[in-house]
Design a protein around this nucleic acid. Structure first.
Lengths: 207, 207
DNA sequence: GAGTTGATGTGACATTTGTCATTTTAGATT
DNA sequence: AATCTAAAATGACAAATGTCACATCAACTC
């Protein structure tokens, strides 16, 4: 697999080069130290994977990635960065980056490059931890606070799947009447009126 | 590195076992075929990485993961799934899964497991493509593709707010019977059975 | 004007739904 | 064994729901 490395610190790029060249199936075909380098070197070499720093003078990694992906939408770009920055992460995701890992935890660089080459996307765990916050963040719903039993939780999930009482009864190995009673109990605990409101509640507050 | 594999299809779990055991630094210490297995086997073996299917009868992968992470928050769990489902991805991210990759593109399983073991998170590229949409929450549902009229859109929204037909009728200045007919029309266009399924559909596919 | 169309409404109907009082069942406790 | 208790089930009931055939009406076309 043919790789290009871009980092404005020559020390970093040469270290990475050594690490990756040490793998029998990897070959670093070029290194550069700016976004401009990235664009031209990719055009020249058509590598399989581009490992690139984000913060660089002149054209930064994200800008370079945008240019490269415009003409080469399948390029695998693995960002290697020192910083955890929501905006960068968000932008990188939007661009279609293949990965975003922190230099501090790049012990798995080789495995990451290989996974990226295979079409997966790799993100540092610290980065992934931020994703839920960036998505619609909801506290884990506290069933106990409402006195909702386990069976009732199960029922709620089935309702939110659109099942009828009869179907739920089959799934839970209970009588249909029992399900009705359970439903009644859940609705009154959550102060809702009917199953549709329960489904809405589920999507708004639980998932 | 010690690995446990959970998949309800024995064929899959044994294939994966062979693939991973073939690596000198990996050892599959156990396999199972349910969420229950996952919980007990993890407790018994304390593996480094848990590779697990999501959809399983009884306790599914996400439920099992929740249980496992509760007592073992640093466990690396790599979900291997056949499906792309926003709800699953969202939940998996929130749980703190180490990865979520599609079975179809598991050629990089070995590299992925290794990256996960090293603390990175791995996601199938298809999955990552969905993230920006999930971040933006901007994904506009194409009502026209289903021939849904404006009035019907309005109705859908009210249903997803948990309103009854009578209430919707008042809001829309129409008769209750008309609302019923509208509802009937919407349901058949979307191939759904009742208002609760419509509400679920709304939260899954529209918002 | 006659006819067509689409939105709106009505009435009848079978089902499903949620509530409630009551009973049955199964498991523990004594 | 007798008792207690929570879970599960039953039966009756009113209300809401979804389907369907059909009626009304306004707007537009010919």
């Amino acid at each position: 697999m043919r790789i290009i490395i871009i980092d404005d610190d020559p020390l970093v790029s040469s270290s990475l080069q050594i690490i990756l060249n040490n793998e029998s199936d990897m070959e670093v075909v070029a290194t550069g130290n700016s976004g401009f380098d990235a664009v031209s070197l990719v055009e020249k070499h058509s590598p399989d994977v581009l490992v690139m720093d984000i913060r660089m003078d002149g054209m930064n990694g994200l800008e370079a990635a945008e240019k490269i992906l415009a003409s080469n939408p399948d390029m695998k770009i693995l960002f290697l960065t020192t910083f955890l920055d929501d905006e960068y992460i968000n932008k990188a995701l939007r661009l279609g980056a293949a990965g975003y890992i922190l230099k501090q935890e790049c012990g798995t660089l080789v495995a990451s490059v290989r996974a990226v080459y295979g079409g997966q996307s790799v993100f540092g765990s610290k980065i992934v931890e931020k994703l839920p916050d960036m998505l619609n963040r909801k506290e884990r719903f506290n069933y106990d606070a409402f006195g909702i039993t386990e069976k009732e939780q199960e029922l709620i999930k089935y309702v939110a799947d659109g099942l009828s009482n009869k179907e739920i009864a089959e799934k839970m190995f209970l009588g249909e009447g029992t399900i009705r009673n359970l439903m009644s109990s859940v609705l009154s605990k959550l102060d809702l009126r009917d199953r549709t409101q329960l489904a809405c509640f589920y999507y708004k507050n639980i998932i």
